[in-house]
Deep mutational scan, measured.
Amino acid sequence: RYTFRTRGPEQMKRVVEWARRQNLSYRVEVHGDEYIIHAE
């Protein structure tokens, strides 16, 4: 189980790509310009 905090969509997309390659399920929360990605 991982939690990532990123700023801006570019970093968020990179984390999502990584999670997909690992076959993890993930969800993204948006708080202003901060993205929180939960993957497991």
Rank of each mutant, 00 (worst) to 15 (best):
R1S: 12
R1F: 09
R1T: 11
R1N: 08
R1M: 09
R1P: 10
R1H: 13
R1Q: 10
R1E: 06
R1A: 09
R1I: 11
Y2I: 09
Y2V: 06
Y2F: 12
Y2D: 01
Y2G: 02
Y2W: 14
Y2S: 03
Y2A: 03
Y2P: 02
Y2H: 05
Y2N: 02
Y2Q: 04
Y2E: 02
T3E: 07
T3A: 04
T3D: 02
T3Y: 09
T3P: 02
T3Q: 06
T3V: 14
T3F: 09
T3S: 06
T3M: 11
F4I: 11
F4S: 00
F4H: 01
F4L: 04
F4V: 05
F4D: 01
F4E: 00
R5W: 09
R5Q: 04
R5P: 02
R5D: 02
R5S: 05
R5E: 03
R5A: 04
R5I: 14
T6K: 02
T6E: 03
T6R: 04
T6P: 04
T6F: 08
T6W: 02
T6H: 02
T6A: 14
T6M: 08
T6S: 04
R7F: 10
R7I: 08
R7S: 10
R7H: 10
R7P: 04
R7A: 07
R7M: 07
R7N: 10
R7D: 05
G8R: 14
G8K: 15
G8T: 15
G8A: 14
G8C: 15
G8N: 15
G8L: 15
G8F: 15
G8I: 15
G8Q: 14
P9H: 14
P9T: 13
P9V: 15
P9D: 12
P9Q: 13
P9I: 15
P9S: 12
P9A: 14
P9E: 15
E10F: 06
E10R: 09
E10K: 10
E10L: 09
E10D: 11
E10G: 07
E10M: 09
E10N: 07
E10V: 08
Q11N: 13
Q11A: 14
Q11L: 09
Q11K: 07
Q11E: 13
Q11T: 09
Q11F: 06
Q11D: 10
Q11S: 11
Q11H: 10
Q11G: 13
M12A: 10
M12F: 10
M12D: 00
M12P: 00
M12V: 08
M12Y: 07
M12T: 06
M12W: 05
K13I: 10
K13R: 14
K13Y: 10
K13L: 14
K13G: 06
K13S: 08
K13V: 07
K13H: 12
K13A: 13
K13N: 09
K13E: 12
K13M: 14
K13D: 05
R14L: 13
R14A: 12
R14Y: 07
R14G: 04
R14P: 02
R14S: 07
R14M: 12
R14T: 07
R14V: 11
R14D: 04
V15H: 03
V15L: 10
V15N: 00
V15T: 03
V15E: 01
V15W: 09
V15Y: 10
V16L: 12
V16H: 01
V16C: 07
V16R: 02
V16N: 01
V16T: 06
V16P: 00
V16F: 04
V16W: 02
V16Y: 02
V16Q: 03
E17M: 10
E17T: 06
E17R: 10
E17F: 06
E17A: 12
E17K: 07
E17S: 08
W18V: 01
W18N: 00
W18A: 01
W18Q: 01
W18Y: 03
W18E: 02
W18T: 00
W18L: 02
A19G: 00
A19D: 00
A19V: 13
A19P: 00
A19I: 15
A19Q: 00
A19F: 10
R20Y: 05
R20I: 15
R20L: 12
R20S: 07
R20E: 12
R20D: 05
R20A: 08
R20Q: 12
R20N: 07
R21G: 08
R21M: 11
R21E: 10
R21H: 07
R21L: 11
R21D: 07
R21I: 08
R21P: 00
R21Y: 06
Q22R: 13
Q22I: 05
Q22Y: 13
Q22H: 15
Q22W: 14
Q22T: 06
N23L: 06
N23S: 08
N23R: 10
N23Q: 10
N23A: 07
N23E: 06
N23H: 11
N23G: 15
L24W: 09
L24I: 05
L24S: 01
L24G: 01
L24C: 04
L24K: 03
L24P: 01
S25V: 13
S25K: 13
S25H: 13
S25R: 13
S25A: 11
S25L: 12
S25Y: 12
Y26A: 04
Y26V: 15
Y26F: 12
Y26G: 00
Y26T: 09
Y26S: 03
Y26Q: 01
R27H: 11
R27L: 08
R27Y: 14
R27V: 13
R27W: 15
R27S: 12
R27Q: 09
R27K: 10
R27N: 07
V28I: 13
V28Y: 03
V28F: 04
V28M: 04
V28P: 01
V28W: 04
V28Q: 00
V28K: 00
V28D: 00
E29G: 02
E29I: 12
E29F: 12
E29M: 08
E29H: 07
E29K: 04
E29V: 10
E29N: 04
E29A: 05
V30D: 04
V30Y: 09
V30M: 12
V30T: 09
V30N: 07
V30I: 13
V30E: 08
V30Q: 14
V30K: 14
V30P: 05
H31Q: 12
H31G: 03
H31N: 12
H31Y: 12
H31F: 12
H31E: 13
H31T: 07
H31R: 12
H31M: 12
H31V: 14
H31A: 10
G32H: 05
G32L: 06
G32P: 03
G32N: 07
G32M: 06
G32E: 08
G32F: 06
G32W: 04
G32D: 09
G32Q: 06
G32K: 05
G32S: 04
D33P: 05
D33E: 11
D33W: 06
D33I: 05
D33A: 08
D33M: 08
D33G: 10
D33V: 07
D33L: 08
D33F: 07
E34Q: 08
E34C: 13
E34W: 15
E34A: 06
E34R: 06
E34L: 14
E34G: 09
E34D: 09
E34Y: 14
Y35D: 01
Y35K: 02
Y35M: 05
Y35E: 01
Y35A: 05
Y35C: 03
Y35W: 10
Y35F: 11
Y35H: 04
I36S: 02
I36T: 05
I36G: 00
I36D: 01
I36H: 04
I36L: 08
I36W: 12
I37Q: 00
I37G: 00
I37V: 07
I37S: 00
I37F: 04
H38F: 14
H38M: 09
H38N: 05
H38I: 14
H38W: 12
H38G: 01
H38R: 07
A39Y: 08
A39I: 15
A39K: 01
A39R: 01
A39T: 14
A39H: 03
A39D: 00
A39Q: 01
A39S: 03
A39G: 02
A39V: 15
A39N: 00
A39W: 11
E40D: 09
E40W: 15
E40T: 11
E40M: 13
E40F: 15
E40G: 13
